[in-house]
């Protein structure tokens, strides 16, 4: 068999989907989009901004209050607090990246 014959034969091996295939895909897609939109989180840049703002404000508050009420207050404590909050952010970003990768696979 020559190249053209094989081509003709393989073209005939094309399998057709069911008639309602496209409608099923679009229905499934609409259903998924509506479920997703109901549990939609903030966009990533807003989450990052939120975390940074929370870190700075809570760090200052923590520092101000602790300095007034705790006699032997160590200023390293609010820094550790800020570090913990930023580690939390890192964790959230990691989760988001993993979810995106899993979606793509």
């Amino acid at each position: 068999m020559n190249e053209n014959d094989i081509k003709k034969i393989i073209k005939k091996s094309k399998v057709k989907t069911k008639a309602d295939f496209t409608d099923n895909v679009l229905t499934k897609l609409e259903a998924e989009c509506s479920t997703r939109s109901s549990i939609k989180l903030w966009p990533l840049h807003q989450i990052i901004l939120g975390f940074v703002a929370f870190t700075v404000i809570s760090g200052f508050l923590f520092y101000g209050l602790s300095k007034n009420y705790i006699p032997d207050f160590n200023p390293i404590v609010p820094l550790l607090w800020a570090l913990m909050v930023l580690l939390g952010l890192n964790y959230v970003l990691g989760l988001s990246k993993q979810r995106n990768l899993a979606d793509f696979k």
Binding site: K14, V15, K16, T17, F21, T22, V25, L26
Partner: peptide, 18 residues
């Protein structure tokens, strides 16, 4: 444009199924 997506699905569904 969902209509455009419908056309894309129709264009690629049979070859993709194969």
């Amino acid at each position: 444009d969902m209509q455009a997506f419908r056309i894309l699905v129709d264009l690629y569904k049979d070859k993709s199924l194969s």
